[in-house]
Amino acid sequence: MAVGPYGALLDAVRGVRWPARRRVPGGSPGVHQARTRGVAPEFAEYRPYRQGDDPRRIDWKLLARSDRAFIRLAPDHAVLGTTFVVDASASMDFPRGRDGKWALARRLTVALAAVAHASADPVGLLVGTAAGPRRLEARTRAGVVAELARTLDAVVPEGSASLAPLVALSRERCVVITDCLGDIDATRAALARHHARGGEAHLLHLVAREELEPGERSILAVDPEDPACERPLVEETRDEYRQRFAAWRAKLARAALADGIRYLEVRDDALPETLVRRIASTAVHEPSA
């Protein structure tokens, strides 16, 4: 699979498994435990025979012993469709001059998509851009990861983008990759609804190193998505800026946790392969890497 510059990353995450956090709805056979019971050899439980059941599923030995008809049930496994909702607003293109949030967002998306695809899960993509969402339907075919990578490489973050409507279009596992500086409240509410409907909600909060530690130089900070927002970041205001930003991140994390969203704050200089392993782990909420 030709994925260009992502080759080393994909090699690093080869073998990583990303199990579902809860039983998935039944469907195409997959690796994730489903809520339904199937006809797998592994025994799970008995159920009384009802009219309409397949007679071949009757446990004849139990019938002989108990004189009652029961059918054997076994746990089912199904696929977990995964949709990556990626924020391509102007704030993601920071800092300029080096691989920042957007580069990490692309790498995480491609790597996680490869991990999910390796488990035969359909993977899809929704990119929130100022011109409207770019959509890649969730598929399991072989070249979907490369196609996903090409789609992301062709996007230039700019303008403002709404991610909340895209959550409603996603598959069972929705992974939102964003810096949370857009419509985060609406997006979080959409993820909470998605989780309440039985889906798996992930929120990867990307933070640039320069946003955490803006440096000693006095600047007039300008919001790239709102040029009217100009604030002097000087010695007198730097500490309060850090406190405000940290308080907001902590509040967002608590709110996401309360909503059942799997929240992870990620610094843009973190290694993508490390992050993939952490995301795929069983932890519910973790602080920044």
Binding site: E230, V234, T237, Y241
Partner: peptide, 23 residues
Amino acid sequence: RRPPPAPLPTARFVPVSEARAVS
């Protein structure tokens, strides 16, 4: 004087003050 403008996506968290800084 007015400090030089620079993009910062988290500018909203900077306290509002007069856009002049002692440098």
